[in-house]
Amino acid sequence: MSDRHEHAHLPDTVLRVKALESLLVEKGLVDPAALDTLIETYEHKVGPRNGSRVVARAWSDPDFKQRLLRNASAAIAELGFTGRQGEDMVVLENSEKVHNMVVCTLCSCYPWPVLGLPPVWYKSAPYRARAVIDPRGVLKEFGVELPETTEIRVWDSTAEVRYLVLPMRPRDSEGMDEEALAELVTRDSMIGTGLPLSPSQVPSSK
């Protein structure tokens, strides 16, 4: 079911949760910050970190990567992950020349089947506004400094298209298998606000 009007149309359950939450917050019964903290605890439990497996497969299987870049929804479905509304996924490949970064303030536009829950900051209006105007500055705040020669492209999710960033494979990750590679893929690296971990940053005991 696509929304041709490009206006948000939230499902019944989402509206009910928002209604209850806004009433509880106004009455001072729940603190939005406390809710966010609690939700962050479970962040990785939503749509378990499927995206990292997609990225790890693309890093280790060039044929899969080609299919992924050509038709992301179909390639992601090969791994058994599908969105519920049949929204189209588009994968954006990072390179030395281009760094992709995704924004959208509507939680309904976030590809949670592959990325899990959106981080709290992602939903904030200032993030979206600033990401468009000053992407390099925003990235710097996330601790990501890219060479001046790297072009930064900012993508705004639409009602029909959800983006997933394919980060560059870390240099010192040769010889690692898919499972080990998946450990290097952070959520932020798939939104484009972070880089994958280097193998030395991953604790040896799982």
């Binding site: 499902p11 359950t13 989402v14 949760v17 209850l20 939450e21 509880l24 019964l29 729940v30 603190d31 406390a34 809710l35 609690l38 939700i39 479970y42 962040e43 439990k45 939503v46 749509g47 378990p48 519920r84 939680c107 976030y110 949670w112 829950l117 959106p118």
Partner: peptide
Amino acid sequence: MDDDGPVFREPWEAQAFAMTLEL
């Protein structure tokens, strides 16, 4: 649930869960 705790299918589920815990 899985070995680590509750699992959610969509963000609103986690929100409903979190509100319940808070209250």
